[in-house]
Simulated assay, not measured.
Amino acid sequence: MPTQRYSNTSIVLHWLIAILIVAAFALGTIMTDMKFSPTKLQYYSYHKWLGVTVFGFVAIRLLSRLFSKAPPYPANMGLWQTRIANATHLFLYVLMFGVPLSGYFYTLAAGYPVVYFGQFELPVLMGPNPDIKESLKDLHEILTKVMLVMVLLHIAAALKHHFIDKDGLLLRMRPGR
């Protein structure tokens, strides 16, 4: 029996979001270690644009999941594995919304607007607030690190299913036919 796959929309969004998250993480790591300069400020803008884009694509992906169900898990996966997989996916969605939102509110608390692609100012939902700025920065960094761990676990599980279990799970999200 051939492996059932996710919809093409889900596959494209999955890999696009994955690439954008890796780019945002890499850029965030690079920019925070730079000395103050116009380049650093530009990198912060790019990082914010990536975050807003991830947020938007994740919202679209979540909506698409309402209209196209995920393919079933392989029959050999036990109940505990399916529960962990479902919980992990849910937690990843929470993080994919939480990381950009925490960065957005940190930016606002620091007194800066978020201007998407330098053209569209996002709504300012709160004014500058130095009292919570550092807490929001810490929250953003913690959520980012938790997301990194969860993404690595997600990748490890997919590779385990592909190379050890050989159950076709990874093929459900493979681009192409």
Rank of each mutant, 00 (worst) to 15 (best):
F91S: 08
I60M: 07
I84F: 15
V114W: 05
L66H: 06
Y106P: 05
P100C: 11
F67W: 14
R83P: 01
V114D: 07
G78T: 10
T107Y: 07
G111F: 13
A70E: 13
G111P: 07
G56P: 01
A59D: 04
K69W: 07
H89Q: 09
A85I: 02
V114F: 07
F67T: 12
N86P: 00
S102M: 04
A85N: 07
W80Q: 12
L90E: 01
N86D: 14
A87Y: 05
T107N: 14
V58D: 02
F117E: 03
L95R: 03
F117W: 05
V99K: 06
L90K: 02
S68I: 11
I60A: 10
Q81D: 15
P74S: 02
V114K: 04
A85Q: 06
F117R: 00
L95I: 06
I60G: 02
Y106G: 02
L101K: 04
I84D: 03
V114H: 08
N86C: 05
L108V: 05
P113F: 12
S64V: 11
A59R: 00
L101D: 08
V58L: 06
R61Y: 11
H89V: 01
Q81P: 07
Y106M: 15
Q81I: 08
G56R: 01
Q81E: 15
T82M: 15
P71N: 01
I84P: 01
L108W: 11
G98D: 08
Y106V: 01
Q81T: 12
M96I: 01
L90Y: 10
R83N: 13
F91T: 03
V58F: 10
V94G: 01
F117H: 00
T88R: 01
A87W: 06
S64T: 09
P100R: 06
Y104Q: 06
A87C: 05
M96D: 03
P74M: 05
S64A: 15
A75I: 08
Y112V: 00
M96L: 14
Y73Q: 09
L95W: 08
A85D: 07
L62G: 02
G78F: 04
P72G: 11
P74L: 08
A70H: 03
F67G: 14
F57Q: 00
V94K: 02
I84M: 14
L66I: 10
G103Y: 05
G111C: 12
G98L: 07
F67Q: 08
G56T: 03
S68T: 14
